[in-house]
Design a protein around this nucleic acid. Structure first.
Length: 526
RNA sequence: GGGCGCGUAGCUCAAUUGGCAGAGCAAGGGACUCUUAAUCCCUAGGUUGUAGGUUCGAUUCCUACCGCGCUCACCA
């Protein structure tokens, strides 16, 4: 098939390239085919600045006041008041728009999301200011000093007596009315999204405030924030395929963690009885509205309690975080009202499925009888390979989407939960719950399995599943077993998907919207 | 990977049945001393995602490919 050789397509490489190989250089898509007029104009002004001895990227910035602080300071002081006071001010910011009237020019400065209008009047402003203003483009960072006045319309305005270029922008900002719409461009060039789309900025702030509120809540309850390894010789704590990497010095295979769980419980063994970690986990799996290959997980462990304690903890946590971030516990998520104030209803997975589709999973304790039971109620059992997976499939399809208000689903089958403690009343089940909100899993918790012999047996059982082809089976972890053989106190553990929590609080439809830099397909060569 | 949809100027979007590819913003030139989506006049900006095909003629119809979105599957 050499006949239709394509010129544009480079031959596929079969060997990995060194990261410095120039062929791997990222090439922004718009590279060659843009109209260059605007960038040439900006380049020309850059050159003009340099020609007149002005550094367009100076190292030093004279002191400035933050725009927010300035607005607080001035308040609603009136026009005459300001004129009488001759109020001086100096601010820095990005020029977001310019309006000129021949002899009077206005331009808007934005710094940390706050705007201040500046002005320069011919005959009033120093000639150097007016001359420099000719070289200023929308997008440039500048420092302005001058005196404050109010326009006829009451807008607080800084009449420039001094103007300094702080950073010349060589590319235009996106359209000022509609902002940047293209989903891909918004994700790839998040800085533009943040600059021109109010919602993007709001979401970023909500995320940061959420993490801060989580920390504050847990700190207030005596939890200790810790950091555990991201690079692990053995991954575990969740059902997922890992990323694999390599440590040269020991010629050692390492995995990027899929959860923090096993290390945090080692710390509980060590007497750090209340610990938490907020960190990135990595799962080598598909992307979706609710999944990113790397994501932020909060895990916390509390000794001398159990999954009931974790239910109370997470109820209090969500209520507290919502109040801290939004000032209220009632939120709207994709058009649906949700109340994050507890307590949340609790339902066993058995009851949930019995109600949703009339199947009693405990009355059908193996794959074949469960398949038959599912068919008996007119549903397709699909090709789930194990009983546990079929339960999971049924739940995901029939129950999960309907759980809009916060709901605890409890008492999972032991086969799905190799690290959770069995229920005393029914050894087929474990003391575990998952928290669902807006049809989405937000949290997962259990009474931690602290019987080392049972734990070993569970790992062995997982090994059998792995041998049967379950790529997500939990690996045997002798080092972890050694730790809990020293005695893990009764412990409740909780994991919360931070990004998903932010989706709720920011009313974002996808994880991609709350992830500043979501994973995207690599850009094609230009 | 399957299905559906989309891809037009830097950005946001039009283009009748297949008949000369347009507007606003941004840019360049000009007018204007209270605008804040300023306004007005002029100018420039395009291989319509790529490659083929049908046709006198393709942004429009067909095929393949690339990319994006939604969705299903995979997957927490």
């Amino acid at each position: 098939m050499r006949g239709g050789q394509r010129r544009g397509r480079p031959a596929r490489r079969h060997r990995p390239l060194h990261p410095c190989d120039p062929s791997l250089a990222r090439r922004p898509r718009e590279g060659g085919c843009v109209s260059e007029a605007e960038r040439e104009a900006r380049r020309a002004r850059l050159a003009a600045l340099r020609a007149s001895g002005i550094d367009p990227y100076p190292a030093r910035v004279e002191p400035v006041e933050r725009i927010a602080a300035l607005r607080d300071r001035i308040g609603d002081a009136g026009a005459e008041d300001l004129e009488a006071r001759v109020e001086p001010a100096a601010v820095a910011g990005r020029v977001m728009s310019m309006r000129s009237f021949g002899k009077l020019r206005f331009f808007d400065l934005v710094e940390d999301g706050r705007k201040l209008q500046a002005s320069a009047r011919k005959g009033e402003a120093p000639p150097a200011v007016l001359a420099l203003l000719d070289q200023v483009d929308v997008g440039d960072a500048v420092r302005v000093e001058g005196t404050l006045w109010r326009t006829k319309t009451g807008e607080l305005t800084l009449a420039a007596t001094g103007l300094t270029m702080l950073a010349k922008s060589l590319r235009p900002l996106p359209e000022k009315w509609h902002g940047l719409q293209d989903v891909e461009a918004r994700s790839r060039q998040r800085y533009l999204d943040l600059l021109v789309n109010e919602a993007a900025r709001r979401t970023a702030l909500i995320r940061s405030h959420t993490v801060r509120a989580l920390r504050s809540f847990l700190d207030g309850r005596g939890f200790l924030e810790v950091e555990t390894p991201v690079l692990q010789p053995l991954y575990g704590g969740a059902a997922a395929r890992p990323f694999v990497t390599h440590l040269n010095v020991f010629d050692q295979r390492l995995y990027l963690r899929i959860s923090d769980e096993l290390y945090l419980k080692r710390l509980v063994v060590g007497g750090l009885d209340r610990v938490y970690e907020i960190g990135r986990d990595f799962r080598n799996e598909g992307l979706s509205r609710k999944h990113n290959p790397e994501f932020t997980m909060l895990e916390c462990y509390q000794a001398f309690t159990d999954y009931n304690g974790m239910m109370e903890l997470v109820e209090a946590m969500f209520e507290d975080v919502a109040r801290s971030v939004l000032g209220q516990t009632r939120i709207e998520v994709q058009g649906r009202e949700i109340e994050l104030g507890g307590p949340y209803p609790r339902v066993t997975i058995q009851d949930a499925l019995r109600e949703a589709c009339g199947v009693d999973i405990l009355a059908a304790p193996d794959l074949e009888t469960l398949r038959a039971a599912v068919r008996a109620v007119g549903l397709d059992p699909g090709d789930a390979p194990t009983w546990g997976r079929l339960v999971d499939d049924l739940f995901s399809e029939k129950v999960e989407p309907s759980l809009v208000q916060p709901t605890f689903v409890t008492d999972y089958p032991v086969e799905l939960s190799p690290l959770a403690k069995r229920k005393a009343s029914d050894p087929r089940l474990v003391e575990r719950f998952e928290l669902f909100v807006a049809g989405m899993e937000l949290g997962n918790a259990f009474s931690e399995l602290n019987d080392p012999d049972d734990q070993r047996a569970r790992f062995v059982e997982q090994g059998r599943a792995a041998a049967e082809g379950d790529e997500e089976a939990h690996p045997m972890d002798e080092d972890y077993l050694r730790a809990i053989e020293h005695g893990l106190p009764p412990t409740g553990g909780l994991g919360v998907g931070v990004g998903r929590l932010v989706m709720l609080l920011a009313d974002a439809p996808t994880l991609r919207e709350v992830e500043l830099f979501p994973h995207l397909r690599p850009e094609p060569p230009a």
